[in-house]
């Protein structure tokens, strides 16, 4: 129990530091720590496969992407006033948290029920194959979106090179 509590405190502390850090690179590193600790919590909740994926994708791939993007875009600390003032943000936050706690409190006494022991792989490949298709579609659209966004020049038209050579 102590470990779970320490991990939860670590998750929240690193998330806070990721938000309040002035430098983007430091923020990305705190986000990676949040991901790693979240993966640990997921493992303790009984989902080791998801924990491994979260660790490799959340703490690994996404952090590399952040560092890459910060390297290209550069550090730009924006010190000017935020769109929403901090007191208003705090009030909204407290109201939202209060509502969430109010809705979640009755579920805390929930009696766990048992379900048939089915392998996750079986569910993933047999019952949730639509999710797999969705993930593949998301991957392709993401790759195409990034290619479209990061491309600089115009697409080369066939015959354009020949015209340039002729000129």
């Amino acid at each position: 129990m102590v470990w779970q509590m320490l991990i939860a405190i670590g998750i929240l502390a690193s998330a806070v530091l990721a938000i309040i850090s002035k430098r983007l690179l430091v923020s990305a590193i705190w986000l990676a720590l949040t991901s790693a600790l979240t993966a640990l919590m997921i493992y303790l909740l009984g989902a080791p496969q998801i924990a491994v994926i979260e660790l490799s994708v959340g703490a690994g791939l996404v952090t590399v992407l952040f560092v890459f993007a910060i390297n290209i875009a550069g550090e730009e600390p924006i010190e000017i006033r935020s769109l929403v003032s901090k007191p208003v943000a705090w009030v909204l936050l407290v109201v939202a948290a209060g509502l969430a706690i109010y809705m979640l409190l009755p579920t805390l006494g929930l009696v766990p029920t048992t379900s048939p022991d089915i392998a996750t792989a079986s569910i993933l490949w047999n019952q949730r194959y639509l999710d797999i298709l969705l993930q593949i579609a998301i991957f392709f659209s993401g790759v195409l979106g990034v290619l479209g966004l990061l491309s600089d020049g115009k697409p080369r038209v066939a015959g354009e090179e020949e015209e340039q050579h002729a000129a």
Partner: peptide, 14 residues
């Protein structure tokens, strides 16, 4: 709840 609150706060002020 803490993660959601921290993230919402970050979305609001950043």
């Amino acid at each position: 709840l803490g993660l959601a609150a921290i993230a919402f706060y970050g979305l609001l002020i950043s």
